[in-house]
């Protein structure tokens, strides 16, 4: 028995919302970053599911590029986290409130 694409889509939505919740529940930069990665991956899953339903092969190339970009993004993001930690001696978001005018 095969699985309808809609199942994959709903799963991706659930994962996405869990990512959002995780972002608000966590209190340190690294965990919040991981939450963002969850959201990104759920978006990939939705993309693949819908493309599969529409029989669109090129979508896989796009997902491939998204993964590549995500790798670059993770490298830069973690570097920033490290720099912040070095300067502030903390990665608790409650300690970081200088992002204002």
């Amino acid at each position: 028995m095969t699985v309808p694409a809609g199942y994959f889509f709903v799963l991706s939505l659930v994962l996405f919302v869990l990512g959002i919740v995780a972002f608000f529940v966590k209190r340190d930069l690294i965990s919040q970053f991981m939450a963002i990665e969850v959201m990104l991956n759920s978006a990939n899953l939705a993309f693949l599911a819908l493309a599969r339903q529409a029989h669109f092969a090129d979508a896989q190339v796009v997902v491939f590029f998204i993964i590549t970009v995500a790798a670059a993004e993770a490298a830069i993001g973690l570097a920033i986290v490290l720099v912040i930690f070095r300067r502030r001696k903390s990665i608790r978001t409650a300690d970081l409130n200088s992002l204002k005018g």
């Binding site: 028995m1 095969t2 699985v3 309808p4 694409a5 809609g6 994959f8 889509f9 709903v10 939505l13 939705a46 599911a49 819908l50 599969r52 339903q53």
Partner: peptide
């Protein structure tokens, strides 16, 4: 995304 919820299985 309700339009894509029903549909045949992926084959």
């Amino acid at each position: 995304g309700r339009g894509s919820l029903p549909g045949a299985g992926v084959t």
